[in-house]
Amino acid sequence: MRTQLTTRIIFAILALAFWVPPSFADGEEIAPRVDSVSFKRGGGDSLLIDFGLQGDISKEIVETLDSGLSVRITYRARVVRSASFFLGGVISDREFDRLLEKDNLTNTYRVSDDDGGKVREFETLAQALELMRTVENFNVVPLTSILPDQNYQLELQVKLEEFRLPFLLHRFLPFTGLWDETTPWLVLPVPKNISQTR
């Protein structure tokens, strides 16, 4: 009887030790969300989309950029075929990152894509954030993968990557100004005639 009680207590201690408390976020902000999505055909028969990011990203970004740290936003798009049973599923899942940095010496902001694209410099944070909120010509799937007689859905999500402390201290140390903001998936039907439009 005593052994069982001791085992339970040790188990409880183990569970408590490995429990990771949730992150803290202070202040009431408008949750970010994906908006203003438009579909278009791109050269080379690709399905391109434009969309924007609405809502507050985070006020701590200013402090982070002033500290010389970068802010990374990941844009993710999935195309899912709507069909029953095994015929359905994800036919495309793509994402790219956009990195926002501040040069404190020149007091300018730089936005760069992870695909090695050009680096754009801005004089103000607002200009840089405007670019961060706007995505154009995101190639989500080849149009050849879109069959005219099938239904497809586009799922979009934007994730403002979590700011990390060394040694994962942000996991269990409170009051360290964290964020881990991820928009809910925005699900839209892919226009059926998109593959036939020229």
Binding site: G68, L69, F175
Partner: peptide, 12 residues
């Protein structure tokens, strides 16, 4: 920048 980072991590 390091000062700002350190300030940001003051509690930590």
């Amino acid at each position: 920048e390091e000062y700002r980072q350190t300030e940001h991590l003051r509690v930590a």
